[in-house]
């Protein structure tokens, strides 16, 4: 039994939006994910519904038919009152390699200068934190990460770039993240992750799930190149650690 007050609203004819208090908090995310699991396992027909969790909300989308909103609202209220918080969690910590060479970290010198620290200190701070995945969206495999040290907060670039490289690791405001594909972008680029975040050839195209954690570690250019080759051949092994033992 959870004690958050949730709001349930219709979102078009196919979807329903369930919202928790509008805060970026691990305990809220935890409640959302446990409830999503409860919905998937015990309440909703998985072949008919999509569940999209993000920060303080989940959106339930029926793939084909219009939904019966008031009945569903009653059901969701009932399901939320059930005891689901004892369900087991299955979260992982992913250790992701990032090459911070200036070849990739094109904005690193400027970032260091504006944050009044050395490049080494920026890298040290960036790799010291464990970030929480609060959502996946915007682009396939793009993670919304929370938990950036406040010392690394820096506004996005005044002029967005038309082209940011695939794998680019950026800083913007309270956020850090990886561009899963080449795209336009306004974040300050400090490195490049050698692991592809989106692989359409895999059954699960993005190995990370909302609720997982991510920690970056610095690698040299030679190691980066090796990972890239291993990734292409399909023998690169990601480091993941099971949380919630």
């Amino acid at each position: 039994m959870s004690d958050y007050s949730i709001s349930i609203r219709q979102f078009g004819v196919h979807a329903i939006l369930v919202e928790w208090p509008p805060k970026v908090e691990e305990s809220i995310l935890d409640d959302i994910l446990l409830f999503s699991k409860h919905l998937k396992q015990n309440c909703l027909d998985q072949s008919a519904w999509e569940i999209v969790p993000s920060y303080n909300s989940i959106t339930l989308i029926h793939r084909k038919s219009p939904i019966a909103f008031s009945e569903l609202r009653t059901d969701i209220t009932k399901w939320y009152a059930e005891d689901f918080t004892s369900e087991s969690r299955e979260r992982f910590l992913w250790r992701l390699p990032v090459c911070y060479d200036l070849e990739f970290g094109i904005d690193l010198p400027e970032v260091a200068e504006r944050l009044k620290m050395s490049i080494g200190e920026v890298i040290e701070l960036h790799t010291a934190s464990r970030y929480t995945v609060y959502g996946i969206g915007f682009l396939p495999g793009f993670m919304y990460l929370g938990g950036l040290p406040s010392k690394l907060e820096i506004p996005r670039r005044k002029e967005p770039r038309l082209k940011v490289q695939k794998g680019a690791v950026g800083l913007a405001g309270k956020q850090t993240g990886i561009y899963p594909q080449e795209s336009p972008g306004g974040w300050n680029i400090i490195g490049n992750c050698s692991v592809a975040m989106f692989n359409p050839g895999n059954e699960d195209p993005c190995f990370v799930n909302v609720g997982d954690k991510v920690q970056f570690y610095a690698i040299e250019k030679a190691e980066y190149d090796l990972h890239k080759i291993e990734g292409e051949v399909g023998i690169y092994k990601l480091e993941k650690i099971k949380l919630d033992a």
């Binding site: 939006l17 509008p22 993000s54 920060y55 909300s57 989308i61 609060y134 959502g135």
Partner: peptide, 11 residues
């Protein structure tokens, strides 16, 4: 301002 949340075709 709002926290990032799901969007649909037609939003």
């Amino acid at each position: 301002t709002m926290l990032t949340s799901a969007t649909l075709p037609g939003t």
